[in-house]
């Protein structure tokens, strides 16, 4: 084995490389999260982290569990398919704790106008009024019941 007689320095050098590679593997094991690559080139646990975000809109099913009386009124009218929180805002806190968190009733003068103010830009079939001409500043809730607004359908107050 005369070829390797004076090659000790080469083996030591190769050993250094092997050591450095092992060190790389150890460090890599620590810095790459365990779930990385579970589903693809990303941290699999990130999906669970994103899904853990708190819910603010409870969803109309939650409202309808308790407010069955309102649901019955709403079902009969034009607003049947408008979800509760479209007007009342995010209320998951109220759904979790109905006693201590009570929602504020929306101001019909502002709320109704948001959708029903007449504009040429809106789809033609959508019911629209000019609030000034229609009621000259009187809040919509004075005459219309928001849950079933048509007056001839018994919606008048």
């Amino acid at each position: 084995m005369s070829v390797f007689r004076d090659a000790g320095h080469l083996f030591r050098f190769a050993g250094l490389f092997v050591l450095a590679f092992l060190l790389f593997l150890v460090i890599r094991g620590y810095v790459v999260p365990r779930s990385f690559g579970q589903y693809g080139h990303y941290r699999g646990n990130a999906i669970g982290d994103i899904a853990a975000h708190p819910v603010k809109f409870a969803g109309h099913q939650a409202c309808e569990n308790c407010h069955t009386d309102v649901l019955d009124v709403k079902k009969a009218g034009k607003h049947a398919l408008v979800n509760c929180e479209a007007c009342h805002g995010p209320l998951s806190k109220h759904a979790e704790d109905p006693a201590s968190v009570t929602p504020v009733k929306p101001d019909t003068a502002v709320l109704c106008a948001r959708c029903h103010t007449a504009s040429v830009a809106k789809p033609k079939g959508f019911p629209q009024v000019n609030p000034e001409e229609h009621s000259s500043g009187v809040a919509c809730g004075t005459c219309h019941k928001p849950h079933n607004p048509a007056i001839d359908a018994g919606g008048a107050k």
């Binding site: 994103i50 899904a51 853990a52 975000h53 708190p54 819910v55 603010k56 809109f57 969803g59 109309h60 408008v82 979800n83 929180e85 479209a86 007007c87 995010p90 959708c115």
Partner: peptide
């Protein structure tokens, strides 16, 4: 966080 719990999105929920 909503669709994985069986709810719809906030934009769909509030679209009148």
């Amino acid at each position: 966080h909503r669709i994985t719990k069986g709810l719809t999105t906030a934009c769909c929920e509030s679209c009148p």
